[in-house]
Design a protein around this nucleic acid. Structure first.
Length: 467
RNA sequence: GGCGACGUAGCCAAGUGGUAAGGCAGGGGUCUGCAAAACCCUUAUCGCGGGUUCGAUUCCCGCCGUCGCCUCCA
């Protein structure tokens, strides 16, 4: 069974056939950096990170480009409010986002271009569109003429006629049609601007992605991705611009993730209805966010709330729990072979992910493996046998980008003391001094040191950590 | 108004033309001095009404409800 990807363009799952066999060129629209990023941005980055990781797991070499939009109305507006240099402000948020990517265990994209650093390529692109008659300039602005593209609307399923009725926004009178969009904007005083054939100005939003995609990946790519709020007009316009010039399909697969909602509403700055990545990571480890994102399908909208966060946290603990070592002393390998278990998990995992990256189903395979491991441990499997399955668990969880680690570093320093307390407690238990023994357990638990009494003695680990 | 998506147990969430994965929470057990963890058992007539079919949660139509986009947005 081949790997299938749902493409917004055809509204179907398609077999993945790349331009160059064994290689995937993927462009993902990154954030406009005018403010702190929220967990919705994180969701998008996590989704495409998992797609990338899985493609690599399946043997593809992935070129992953993610852009930062750093020249934009919103950046300029916000910079003015904060009395900041627009590009400096953007840079600050880019640095922040780069850090978020690391914190969230997102593989570094192959290239992270920013609009401000790609101006020549963008101008070249606009010039070409003007030269070929797809765009026109007016007073230093350049617009793409939508009516020149007979296929306009094919991605979003919109028709120009339908849309005109709905346009309530003030239309720029100089445009030949309200749907025409800016490729180049003339600069107002104080705005970041660059020399161009049309005077000082800056690129429009849509053209930057097309130009950067073409520059870093070529005129044709395999996957173009982003949030589904970008389908119209952004990606529609990108298709128009690019395909008018190349006459070939810009991207083979258009992949869009669903929006994350907060409290049942779209996350929106205006209502203060946002949770920043930073705020989330102050409360929970990155794996929690990843797990809650992956628990639903990437194309579905996801309502973020405390309940699903708590569920993800517990689910994560459960997965980590499977990595606990075998019970010492019990050692009957022959009765608990791990191979059938790991084979099944592998197979289910791949089958799920091959089906348009069905991570909920993939997680289900992971949980089945978790249960299998725990059953084997309870039944007395040896560490050697258990380790095989645990390695498989780490492997496929790793494909989803889960770290499955906890706070480390303290362990070696603390272990001596903890061991000492355990020894004392063991003697207390032997002499049935339960109250004192329980007090040690309770107080250690408050410090994040969790004790588990078993037949073979007591084992301990830090809260949330296994291993 | 236009385009699109969704509606599955208390919550989250897969999925199939032949009576439904997984997780969280709940209930009952096993284990334990107690607990924790783990394991076992247990909780769904798949929004409503029609239609197609031997048979639909799954296909079609209508309705109701929720949401996204149509303007900057991952």
């Amino acid at each position: 069974m081949a790997l299938q990807i749902y493409s917004t363009l055809t509204r179907r799952k398609e077999n993945l056939v790349t331009l160059n066999s064994g290689k995937v060129r993927m462009y993902v629209c990154g954030p406009t950096v005018y403010d702190r990023a929220h967990i919705g941005h994180a969701m998008s980055s996590i989704v495409f990170d998992v797609i990338r990781r899985y493609l690599e797991y399946r043997g593809f070499e992935v070129q992953h480009v993610m852009n930062y939009t750093d020249v934009d109305d919103k950046v300029i507006r916000r910079a003015r409010i904060l009395s900041f240099e627009p590009l400096k402000l953007a840079e600050k948020y880019i640095d922040e986002y780069d850090q978020h990517l690391k914190d969230l265990n997102i593989l570094e994209p192959t290239v992270r271009p920013r609009a401000s650093e790609e101006i020549p390529a963008i101008i070249e692109r606009v010039e070409e569109l003007v030269a070929k008659g797809f765009a026109y300039s007016v007073d230093g602005d350049v617009f793409f003429e939508v009516s020149r593209d007979p296929n306009y609307g094919k991605l979003s399923g919109r028709h120009l006629d339908d849309m005109q009725a709905g346009v309530r926004i003030e239309v720029d009178e100089r445009k030949r049609s309200p749907a025409d969009f800016a490729l180049w904007k003339s600069a107002k005083p104080g705005e970041p601007s660059w020399e161009s054939p049309w005077g000082l100005g800056r690129p429009g939003w849509h053209i930057e992605c097309s130009a950067m995609s073409a520059r870093h990946l070529g005129d044709e790519i395999d996957i173009h991705g982003g949030g589904n709020d970008l389908i119209f007009p952004h990606h529609e316009n990108e298709i128009a611009q690019t395909e008018s010039l190349t006459d070939r399909a810009f991207a083979r697969y258009w992949v869009h993730n669903g929006m994350m909602q907060l409290g049942g509403e779209a996350m929106s700055k205006s209502t203060g209805n946002v949770l920043s990545i930073e705020e989330f990571l102050e409360m929970h480890e990155a794996d929690v966010l990843r797990l809650l994102v992956l628990n639903s399908h990437y194309r579905s909208p996801l309502s973020f709330n405390d309940e699903i966060t708590e569920a993800a946290k517990r689910g994560l603990d459960r997965i980590k729990g499977a990595l606990k070592p075998a019970i010492p002393g019990d050692d009957d390998s022959s009765r608990h072979p791990s191979k059938p278990l790991t084979d099944k998990a592998s197979q289910d995992f791949i089958q799920a992910m091959d089906d348009d990256f069905n991570t909920p189903r993939a997680l289900s395979a992971i949980y089945e493996l978790v249960r299998g491991i725990n059953q084997a441990r309870d039944a007395g499997a040896s560490q050697q046998e258990l380790g095989v399955a645990q390695d498989k668990l780490r492997e496929i969880a790793g494909v989803l980008g889960l770290r499955l680690t906890g706070p480390r570093g303290l362990e070696s320093q603390a272990s001596g003391l903890v061991e000492l307390l355990l020894e004392i407690r063991e003697e207390l238990r032997e002499s049935e001094h339960w109250a004192l023994a329980d007090r040690i357990r309770d107080r250690l638990s408050e410090q994040g040191v969790m004790l588990e009494d078993g037949k073979q003695g007591t084992i301990w680990h830090f809260d949330g950590q296994v291993g």
